[in-house]
Structures are given as C-alpha cells and as structure tokens.
Design a protein around this nucleic acid. Structure first.
Lengths: 363, 363
DNA sequence: TTGAAAGCGCTAACAT
DNA sequence: ATGTTAGCGCTTTCAA
C-alpha cells in the first residue's frame, strides 16, 4: 500500500501538500500542483490509511450498532436501513454486534468500541437499565437508543428514538374491539422492557375505553433463550398451545410483535384452532413476512425507515449542537394494515360490515 | 481516556514496561513492578487504544462481512453466527455491509476495508465474477467466499465454503418424485449465480434419473429489485400467480430457497390453489420461518452454523498456513425436513404411504 | 530488569 | 503556494 510519502515523492511535493488535497484544501495551491498530486495518487493507487487519519484526528468513520440479534428479521431490516443511510449520507461503515440482551455483552461491546475509537453508537432495544453505557457517553460518545424512553428522573445524555408503542397497541386492540371482540388478550414474553410495558398500557387503555378491562388479560409467555429474539416465535407458539385448552380462551389477541404473532398463529393451528374464525390475531411491526403468512397477518405498521434515518441523523450530530427537543423522538405515523387474521368472534355477528379493506391512518 | 504514558508515569516505570505487561511479557520483570503497573492500569481505567496498536502492528481485530442484504433472514442468521464465533473464538468484531449484489458497492466496501486496515473478509453470495476483489487478496487480504465455487480455470487465492447445492436440490426434487409428482418445476429468480446453477443441475439430475426430464421446467422469476433479497418472496409470489393460470401447471415445485417458497405459497393461495392439495412446494435452507408457515414448509436443511464456523476458522488462518485442501469446502450434511407442504399430486394415489414423518439424512 | 528512542501514516500548525 | 515538523498512542528493537 502506497503511503502519503510515496505520493509526495512521486509528485515532487511535500506531504502537507498531498494532505491538503486529501482534505479539500486544493484552493491553497496552483492548479498545476493539484494536477500533479492527483496524477500521483492515481498512479500509485493511493488510499489514505484511515487508521493513521483516525489516530491523528480522533475521528473514526465507523458507527457502532448493537442489536439483540441479527437473526431477527425486524432488527435485520432496521440494521440494513441504518447501514445504508449511514453509508450514503455520511460515509460511515457499521460495526455491528448481537447482544442477546445480555448486560455483559453490551458492556463488552461498548468497551471495544471505545478502544476502537468509535464515537457514535446506536443501541437497539437494550436492557431496561442503561447505566452501563452512560459512562461511555460521559467519555464523549454520542449514543442513541431505540425503542425505550429516557429513564424518568435521570437526566440522561442518551437520545431516544421510538415508535409510539402505546398507540400501536391501542390501535391494534381497538381494531379487535371494533370487530366485536370482548375477550381480549395481549401476548408478550417474559421480562419487561419499556416498549413492552407501553404496549401493554395501550392494550389496557383500549380495553378500558370499551368497558372491557375485566376481560382483557395478559398472556405472559416464557423467556427468550440463548438464541435470542428469533425464538420469540417459539414463545408465541407455546403461548398458543397453552391458551387453546382454556375454556375462557380469548377470541382476539394482540401480539407483542409480528414474529410473536406468526408463532401464535402456528401454535393456534397446531392446537386445532382456526385463525381468524376461532381466534383473531393482530401483530405490531409490519414486517414483510406478515404479508406472507396464511392467513396474512393484520398488523400495525411502524415507520421503520423513518426511525432508522432519524437515528442516524441524530447520532451524527456533535454533542454541542444538541437540540434539547431531540432528546426523545416519538414516531406516531402508525398504520393499521388490515389483512386476513381478524374476523368477528365466533358465534357473534359482525358489529359492522367487514366490507372493503380500509387502511386507517393515525394522525 | 488514559494513555500508556499516563500509566507509565503513575507506576513510575517506562512506557515499554507497560507495553510489556500489555503484551504478555510479564516474565521480563520483577513481580513488584508488574503489580505496580497493574495497579496503575486499574486506577486509571486504562484501555489501550486499538487504533494506535493497529497502526503500529498492522493488525486489526476486525472482520469484514459482506452480505447481499441484512434484511434477508437467511443472511441475518449466518451473520449472527459468524459474528458470535468471530467474537468468542478470536476476539474479532464485525464490520458489516449490505451489497445488494452490486459490483460497485462490493468494490467500495473492499476499498474501505483495506483503508481501515481490515485484513480478513467473508463474502456471502457475491456476484458470479469475483475479480474485483482478487486484487484485495493480492494485497494481503484473506477472503473466504460463501456459496460459490472457485472460478474454473483461474487459480484463485479466495477460499470457498458452500453447501452441496446440487445435492440439496436433487434431494428436494427426489422427494417430490417419490411422492408421485411428474410435472416438476424449479422456481428461481432472474440472474444466474453458481449456487443457483448448481441447484438447477441437481433438479434436472433428479428428474433425469426418474425419466422425467421432459416434464421438468424452470420457472424464471423476475429480478430482485433495489430492496435486495428480502423481495425474493415477492418474486416467488409473482411466479405463483403466473403459473396458476397455466393448464400444464406443475404439481410439484422446488424453490430456490425458503423465502422464495414462502412467497410461492402466498401467491398460490392468492390464485386459489391449495398447498399441498393442488401444488406441492419444497424449500431449501431450513430457516426457522419455514416451520411457522401454513402449511409448514417441507425443506432441505442446510448446516448453516457449521458453515459459519468453518468460514471464520478459515478466514482467521494466515496465508502461509494455508492448507490446499481447504481451498474449497463443500458441506454435505443435508437433511430433508418433511412437514406439510408436500402431498401426492392431485388425482393420483400416493405411491407410498405418506405415513409417519421420516427425516432422511444424507451421508 | 528496565528505559530510550525510532517509527507506523497521517494532520495541521507554523515557517518560508 | 509549498515545506518542515511535531505529534496521535502504541510496539519493539537496542542499550544500559
């Protein structure tokens, strides 16, 4: 690999002149000099060594990205959007890591990022407690966290971007209610996160508003195991098998997310229950997979790309140009996508014509 | 961030002594000195700056990983396995990039990796032509490529790891034939890659062996668009819609991969055809999603984890300790997982009892 | 057993 | 307009 020295020699100029052209200060020199330097760069196939640049400037064009598990299609999608935008918009590459939602893995990753000179990090759905990386922030890192709010009472320097989880679950639940469902359930996994509790609140709020609070139950599935979030579908399946034998089984279920809904549907089917004839299911996320299932999943579409962009934009800002209003960004562009997994409850007539498919948009 | 200088000062030793303890040469000093240095490291929370180490040593504990699209669950899964193993086994972090199978994006990524000091790269399912990164190899990069063989006639320094694609497709096709299918089809997307053509060959070989070559057709779907590989399911759906109206429609279809199979099933259903009663479908991959579909997808399970490990192991070797036999590693541990998407063709009696579910394992 | 010093390749004052 | 030079934080001879 050619160095800046080689280029300087080849062009018969000093290294600083080469450095100047490298750093967009071509105006400081004669056109002829510039041409010579560029020719030399071409001839030698010179690429500035980023490590050296970074050591010198303290800046690394690398973005740290922590996800619970890359094998989860939801995170895969967000990750891809983040990566594309970081690359196209800022020339940053992405250093990624699966954390399996383990505190130790998260900490270790932050340590490495710090040592690696990475100063910008996006954390997806991390643990409830984010104190273990607050220290990284104090050391100058810019971090934005997805799908969790700031911890109340603590003035965090971590920015937060998230969908309106409360509203998403409320919308889903409301849809079930509008279709005539009375026995409602929200299917989640073991362990509480901010986003999960917001969804549960939204679910309860919708039930409450319809005077159905007493009939709204929580289905708490098992824990996610070592394989990370992809098994959430398995939890859904187990939950389905479990409720299938209950006499007072719910007729309409809102799932924590699409993957869980998919698992739920598989489990329900295994248990001999038909969706939507016997049980209706609504997801949250709007994964492309939800359109592929049988029946196609009715779900609340989240503005993933917009959030991905917002996160990148936010994480690229320098600490000093922080806008206080950007501390917490909640995305409310939710859209209920009606497909085939919801029908009136068994033995009841539809309260309104299921008629033509309407896409309700939330303001 | 504390530097090695700070530590040296704090411990009242020279930087080289600190460097020695950092690099496991503690034997060269008195126990007391070692203790002082360690205490100082502790006290100052010192973490050696990797950038500086790298600039000096020319080694970066970073693994480059190119995938067509992280949004594709298949690649998400492989990526996660690679990342976990690279981290646990070698302390390497992963620099990832979606290439959308575009030559330019691949080249640009290689350029960046080179400049970044990354010397080890795993490329998943890249373009047919890999000359654009052969030059990177010549500059000392160790690269292993997934799911494509070495270009015949060229002595490549790129290592290859792949499943036995021919056998996978053959197994899938054979299964359909054993169930009584005569009108066979292989559904693929536009554009040929080595792995695709190997699968097509396997499909044809199985048909040939059963004297069905004339009735084995290729279903060539549209191209993958900008969104990358996740839309392969869309292509599958389009293909299904297209064949549904053909009088001589195939009764058994082998899909390029599970995602395509999922799309195919959705499309078939949309067209009013039942799977497996009207059309049988077999996938290839063994994604966790294939167990969730309705009907659950019969598929050929590939040894993903084993391949991921092999790739990491291989890419971590130094060029001089290359074993010629490792140039190309083909994984043959294929397993047909029978689920629900295959039945005898309509209007025909099963040639053998569909009976108990058997998992055929390939030696 | 420990320390001094020369870089790794680059940037950015500061000189000329 | 161009050149000289002092580091960035670390590793590693080579000396002491």
């Amino acid at each position: 690999m050619a160095t800046i020295q080689d280029v300087a020699r080849h062009a018969a100029v000093s290294v600083s002149t080469v450095s100047n052209v490298l750093n967009g200060r071509a105006d400081r020199m004669r056109a002829e000099t510039l041409a010579r330097v560029e020719a030399a760069i071409q001839a030698l196939q010179f690429r500035p060594n980023k490590l050296a640049q970074q050591l010198k400037t303290g800046q690394t064009p690398l973005l740290g990205l922590l996800v619970p598990s890359m094998a989860n299609p939801m995170y895969g999608f967000i990750a891809r959007e983040i990566e594309s935008f970081a690359q196209e918009g800022f020339g940053f590459r992405v250093l990624i890591g699966s954390t399996y939602r383990e505190r130790e893995k998260e900490s270790a990753f932050f340590e490495d990022l710090l040592a690696q000179g990475v100063r910008r990090v996006i954390v997806i759905s991390s643990l409830a407690d984010e104190r273990h990386f607050e220290s990284a922030v104090e050391q100058g890192m810019v971090v934005v966290s997805y799908d969790r709010g700031a911890t109340p009472g603590r003035r965090s320097r971590v920015a937060h971007v998230m969908p309106d989880n409360f509203e998403a679950a409320r919308l889903a639940t409301q849809h079930l209610i509008a279709r005539g469902h009375r026995r409602l359930a929200f299917a989640t996994v073991a362990g509480m996160t901010m986003s999960r509790s917001a969804k549960i609140d939204g679910f309860h709020a919708a039930a409450e508003a319809a005077g159905l609070r007493a009939q709204a139950q929580l289905l708490d599935g098992g824990p996610l195991n070592e394989y990370g979030d992809a098994v959430i579908a398995e939890v859904g399946r187990a939950t389905a098998l479990q409720i299938a034998e209950r006499p007072e089984r719910p007729s309409g279920i809102v799932a924590l997310n699409d993957l869980m809904a998919l698992g739920l549907m598989a489990g329900l089917r295994e248990a001999g229950l038909r969706v939507p004839q016997d049980v209706s299911v609504v997801g949250i996320d709007g994964l492309f997979l939800s359109a592929l299932s049988n029946p196609a999943l009715t779900t609340v579409q989240l503005p993933i790309r917009a959030m991905a962009r917002a996160m990148v934009q936010r994480v690229m800002k320098n600490p000093d140009e922080l806008d206080a209003t950007e501390r917490e960004q909640v995305f409310t562009e939710l859209r209920l996508v009606e497909r085939e997994s919801v029908a009136p409850p068994p033995g009841e007539t539809a309260r309104r014509a299921p008629g033509k498919k309407i896409e309700k948009t939330n303001p």
